[in-house]
Design a protein around this nucleic acid. Structure first.
Length: 487
RNA sequence: CGGGGUGUAGCGCAGCCCGGUUAGCGCACCUGCUUUGGGAGCAGGGGGUCGGAGGUUCGAAUCCUCUCACCCCGACCA
């Protein structure tokens, strides 16, 4: 096993790092906390992005692009927002370097009058623009999304989960009424749920964030929360109802049908490259990644097996019509012609999580068959090439369903209801989500966090606080909440 | 920012305490032959001046001073 990865059971963190590296997804950049997303990892992101972008557009949003740089003064406008981000902003103070005695230094003469902030998120620039764009109710709703990079100078970073710079989409919408903004916020949350469950095969809990956990500057925040295989939570997408906070901060008003001036209502929402971390940790096993077929860079990886050039020629000839068939069926296929042994390639593609492996050797050519091996179950079958497209399509869909079912069962089995704080502490220690009553106060939340490391993940939509008592204070519960240790 | 640690070949490390010929090892890489249905073998080969600067010394990867970077643990976070 020396060539494999650290087993999950031994050290989940080490397993994660090993897999990211060995599956060739990403590596560290030269500046602390930065990440190089390698071609295989980026192909995965591209597929996720394409799926999400499609859903965002389908629901009436259009893409645009706003600048990376934001004037410092823009951050003065929304107090809570600043408070939330001030401690992690990269600030541009100079615009030039110069060479002094062979050393490169920042040219002091190039100091900027007003420093420029590298966006940690784009609410402020976007709302400064929206002010110009919105005058009438006819300008609303304004439904814009952008794919961008943002920078948050975090203390502790981990590839995909928390990097100094990350990629994401951020949606920013403006509405005429509070109801419409709320509807939008929930509509997006549903898109995120579908992305997680229907595309990535990751079951999620959905609900509202508490005051403490909500976005800086939001009225309230909704999120999708996934359970990783170490039973910790990963917030995988958030949708914020910003109320009129940003409209007030940037003085964005419109005239309604009754000729009255009103403040605009806003939402913002985002999914980042962090979701790749969710894919890794929700499905991966000790052999490596198990990628959901809908986003796997290669859905079928072909391993040709031959002993000499003549056999290779035979395989190529045999393979060509099969590849054509798969291509016509829009199956993403890769033939691994590398000069490595088949055994090496089997392991390598298991590490990389390719959903289906197709082995083709002399035996298969002779019998008009191919060997298919499922990554999720390890199941191995010989099939006749005449049935190849139906079988592969079915298998890809089965793999998705199976990954989802497995993760759903895992989630279900590890959400525990309790009313005992002792049991709460035990469960949090061993890993798992807790569903329990909470008195609704931030004090209680903070104390629990301090004592156990667990935070509230969401107030689930299907909560039922009646007859429940707060897990900590014993007072009547205001809400039923999910507590867990989170990434 | 507090505590701990590490910088020697592309990667992972040994050597350093007790200075001394051409600085080693594993993986990776290159060439050749044999292999190839679960991580191939043998033979040959290329590549580093030891994070940086200064100092001690006949001599420094090794001792001293300064400095830079990164990693791990904490407070903060999608």
């Amino acid at each position: 096993m020396s060539k494999g990865v650290t087993p999950q059971s031994k050290n989940f963190s080490a397993w994660y790092n090993d897999v990211v590296k060995k599956a060739d997804l990403a590596e560290h950049g030269p500046v602390k906390g930065t990440m190089i997303i390698k071609p295989y990892g980026f192909a995965l992101w591209d597929n996720i992005k394409e799926a999400l972008d499609g859903m965002i557009k389908e629901s009436g949003h259009t893409n645009a692009y706003f600048p990376l740089f934001i004037p410092k003064s823009f951050f003065a406008q929304e107090a809570k927002h600043v408070e939330g981000f001030a401690k992690e902003c990269a600030v541009v103070t100079h615009t030039r370097l110069k060479s002094v005695d062979g050393d490169i230094i920042v040219d002091p003469e190039s100091k900027l009058e007003e420093e420029v902030i590298v966006r940690p998120t784009s609410e402020t620039v976007i709302w400064a623009m929206y002010k110009k764009w919105i005058q009438s109710y006819r300008d609303l709703p304004l439904l814009i999304n952008q794919w961008a990079n943002v920078v948050r100078w975090e203390m502790r970073t981990r590839l995909f989960l928390r990097t100094t710079e990350f990629l994401w989409q951020e949606g920013h919408t403006a509405h005429a009424t509070a109801e419409e903004a709320e509807e939008e916020t929930l509509k997006i949350l549903e898109i995120y749920r579908r992305l997680a469950e229907e595309i990535l095969a990751i079951p999620v809990l959905i609900g509202r964030k508490t005051e403490i956990e909500k976005f800086a500057g939001a009225e309230h925040t909704y999120s999708i929360e996934a359970m990783m295989r170490d039973k910790k939570a990963l917030q995988s997408g958030t949708s914020h109802n910003l109320g009129q906070n940003f409209a007030k901060a940037f003085n964005v008003t419109f005239q309604n049908k009754d000729n009255q001036e009103e403040m605009v209502y806003a939402t913002s929402w985002g999914v980042s490259t962090r979701i790749i971390g969710a894919v890794i940790m929700a499905h991966g096993d000790d052999k490596g990644l198990r990628l959901p077929p809908k986003v796997a860079p290669f859905q079928v990886v072909v391993i040709p097996i031959f002993r000499n050039d003549e056999q290779k020629k035979v395989i190529v000839k045999y393979l060509n019509p099969i590849l054509d068939t798969l291509k016509n069926n829009l199956v993403r296929t890769k033939v691994d012609w590398r000069e490595e042994s088949p055994g090496f390639k089997f392991n390598d593609w298991e590490m990389k999580g390719a959903p289906i492996r197709m082995e083709i050797g002399p035996r298969d050519v002779e019998n008009n068959q191919v060997v298919l091996v499922r990554r999720d179950t390890g199941e191995k079958n010989s099939i006749n090439i005449d049935e190849i497209s139906e079988i592969i399509n079915k298998m890809l869909s089965d793999i998705h369903d199976n990954l989802f079912a497995e993760a759903t069962e895992f989630l279900r089995a590890n959400i525990i209801k309790t009313d005992s704080y002792d049991e709460f502490k035990k469960i949090i220690n061993n890993g798992g989500f807790i569903r329990c009553g909470w008195d609704g106060t931030s004090e209680t939340e903070l104390k629990i966090k301090e004592e156990t490391g667990a935070t509230t993940r969401v107030i689930p939509f299907d909560e039922n606080p009646k007859n429940l008592k707060c897990i900590y204070t014993g007072k009547p519960a205001k809400h039923e909440v999910i507590f867990a240790k989170a990434y």
